[in-house]
Design a protein around this nucleic acid. Structure first.
Lengths: 181, 181
DNA sequence: TGGTCACTATATCGGCCCGATACATCGGCC
DNA sequence: GGCCGATGTATCGGGCCGATATAGTGACCA
């Protein structure tokens, strides 16, 4: 997932690690953001795999003593990999974390893939919702008041997400009809 | 976290791995449940640390060919450790995953600790809410329609969780007053 | 002048947890 | 008789996190 996010951000402009992380926070909403302990090793892995390259900073003022920033840019392979990741609509893409990252690059993913991700995610959330509903009715008195409350909140959250997804899907379909016409 | 969950479940009754996992699912709501790939190694770690012990199954029908179930039970140290974990109300306890597990054992945690966890969690969710609010208003047009939608959903979810926490806290306070009277 | 603080910046390490995978037995259904 | 799904234990590679180390920068203040 971090791989997709990094590739997507570097697609807009070359950047160094720290800046990448700030943009990541902005994009993914301050929560679900990745830590430096993940970012730097991943950057190195991507570099090793030839998806990104380290560029000369060429700052206006080189600032001799200053620690050099490592600015990364996408390679051709990196761009291809990004396209491949975008085109993926497999089961992992409906995961909580994964879905958020994919959504962040939705404007650059094909409309058909968008639909499949949205519908897959909906199915996933519906399953969670049903699971919560059955445990809430089945377990009856056996379960703690607090746990029960937690499940209630989870159920409501799932229901709201399904409704939210329905709106997004309806919007996508409307846009599609408009384009066809 | 898994440690707390395992210790808590074994506190009720001795159990083997597979059963532990089923109870985990029931307790934590089918999502956010731990996988076997985490459960078994953790079980072994706990055993190594002397918090749990392997017991003789002593089934009614030993079923010769049958693979032996490994039934685990708490040791005295395990019970102490469980009590320590319950009494902890540190910053990690307001994490998404951690909070859910702690809540599941709330009926066995001291009222004072319950309050501190609830209030800490509320502060945490309020911070996320504020973060979302500022990015939504600050980033303005710079951000993707889809990302925006995701942040909107996140914001609403945070707002609802804060309200939910407020109700729980109010309930706790009412109960406390009742007990004092 | 010196001190502390917050921010920028890169990096490592131990550890938690997951998904995929493997193996083996059981009961039931067709 | 065969297949499948549930029961049951286990390993491995890998993603990600939090704590930690290191270091230069500018600002505020005493």
């Amino acid at each position: 997932m971090l791989e997709l996010a990094i590739l997507g951000l570097l697609h807009e402009a070359p950047m160094h690690g720290y800046e990448l992380r700030k943009r990541l926070h902005e994009l993914l909403g301050a929560f679900r953001a990745f830590s430096f302990g993940t970012l730097y090793p991943t950057l190195r892995r991507l570099q090793r795999e030839g998806l990104i390259v380290e560029r000369e900073p060429e700052e206006v003022a080189p600032a001799w003593g200053r620690r050099a920033k490592k600015v990364y840019g996408l390679t051709v392979e990196g761009k291809e990999r990004f396209a491949d990741l975008l085109a993926d609509a497999g089961p992992q893409t409906w995961d909580d974390d994964s879905f958020g990252v994919h959504l962040a690059f939705f404007s650059r993913t094909p409309a058909e893939i968008r639909m499949r991700i949205l519908e897959g995610r909906r199915r996933r959330v519906e399953e969670r919702r049903e699971g919560l509903r059955t445990t809430l009715s089945d377990t009856g008195e056996r379960i703690d008041r607090y746990t029960r409350e937690l499940h209630r909140l989870g159920l409501e959250t799932s229901e709201r997400e399904v409704r939210w997804l329905n709106e997004l899907i309806a919007h996508e379909q409307a846009e599609q009809r408009e384009k066809d016409a």
